[in-house]
Design a protein around this nucleic acid. Structure first.
Lengths: 219, 219
DNA sequence: TCAAAAGTGTTAAACGTACACCCATGA
DNA sequence: TCATGGGTGTACGTTTAACACTTTTGA
């Protein structure tokens, strides 16, 4: 309630940016240039500007690292252990974002890594990442967040692969399709996707722009 | 990633302390003495000390206001709009706590209010409280947090009243009992509670000390 | 014609939901 | 004996879970 005299606390945002690529849940990391942890990988993030809301700061960081602005973003958790940053007290508000694979161009200093086996991470970012993975798994089961990881048009097999990848378990094809279609969240397209020597797959898109909390579970 | 030069940001914790009393979900508020918002009610809270973790700061505040230390406490959300505190930029990490009614002595400056109809609150505390109520409702349905609001020994009617109060809907007595008992979370006691001109009620206690996430829904 | 992924139904078990009466007690 | 809240079971509909074959295509 009073002010904290003589103490400097920095407030930052950090981002856990997820995608699904190559059958793996992956996370976008940046290579740190300055010390501490120079040369190691870290979650994208940075200080909150004096006139920014926390979410604005998170969206700005996201835009700077990915060039994207129409992305699902949600506050994850706030980390503030006094020794988490050797430079001084820093409280970081972590957000997580879900983007469609292929919308971000990786390079030397910005790259995708498997979320389950990341490289050694700076600060307490391994802990933040773990919190993000658990949250995503939990939300996948009772919301439509998963759809944010797919391109505008996708097949039911794409969707099932996504769920199997993130949850780390196999699902029954017939039951999965029955359940997903019964939710009435998907609009079939005229076109089908033919790729390879087999029957072409029906393309669908997600009817709603926004994430939705479901009554029951998807899986 | 760099430090924020020339900007002072304070970091605070605020507490949404819930109980159930008189058939209502209630929240503990403190009367503010200093400006701004002098004389209005506010969530208990205060600055995070230089060597404290966020949770330690929250527990300290909780102890100062209630005298209790063995309380369910969970991080809720972080609020950081630049103008939320007229004195200057303050980011507040909100926690919510669940305590058993009757363990806190209210007085002139610390008092319980119905969470659904609080008095006018300082800062953005009405928004924080709303976030807390929604989170508690959501968690009640798929975890055992609700048990934290009951004394060590309680009856199934106590438990059902608690659920009905927080969720704001009536539940079927037989179905509720069947479901709760099938979870095997309760230990019956030898004693019963006789109060009034009717059959005495079986007392139970919660087997686990900790909150638990359930497979399905309680209600 | 073969290989590969898409697509499709049925059945049994579990679970959720609706519903009404007897029990034990103190006044 | 009455009023009060405690305590119990069943039947039906819905949901979940397990399970295998046919279709369409390109090579």
């Amino acid at each position: 309630m009073g002010s904290v005299i003589g103490t400097t606390t920095s407030v930052a945002v950090d981002l856990v940016i997820f995608t699904v690529r190559d059958g793996l849940l992956q996370v976008l990391l940046v290579r740190r240039d300055p010390p501490p942890f120079a040369g190691t990988w870290a979650l994208p993030g940075g200080p909150v500007g004096p006139r920014e809301t926390l979410e604005t700061a998170a969206r700005r960081e996201l835009g700077e690292k990915t060039g994207l602005d129409d992305v699902y973003l949600e506050q994850l958790y706030t980390f503030g252990d006094p020794d988490r940053d050797p430079r001084g007290r820093t409280v970081t508000v972590a957000y997580y974002a879900l983007i469609q694979s292929g919308r971000v161009r990786a390079d030397e200093s910005v790259s995708w890594f498997p979320a389950a086996r990341p490289p050694r991470l700076a600060f307490d970012h391994a802990k933040i990442l773990g919190t993000g993975v658990r949250r995503l798994r939990a939300k996948l089961e009772y919301t439509t967040v998963g759809f944010q990881l797919l391109p505008p048009k996708f097949t039911l097999t794409d969707l099932q692969n996504l769920y199997e990848t993130i949850l780390g378990k196999r699902l029954d094809k017939r039951n999965f399709r029955k359940k997903v279609l019964s939710l009435n969240l998907l609009r079939p397209h005229r076109e089908k996707r033919a790729e390879g020597a087999h029957r072409p797959a029906q393309l669908y898109s997600f009817k709603l722009g926004k994430m939705m909390v479901l009554e029951g579970q998807i899986v």
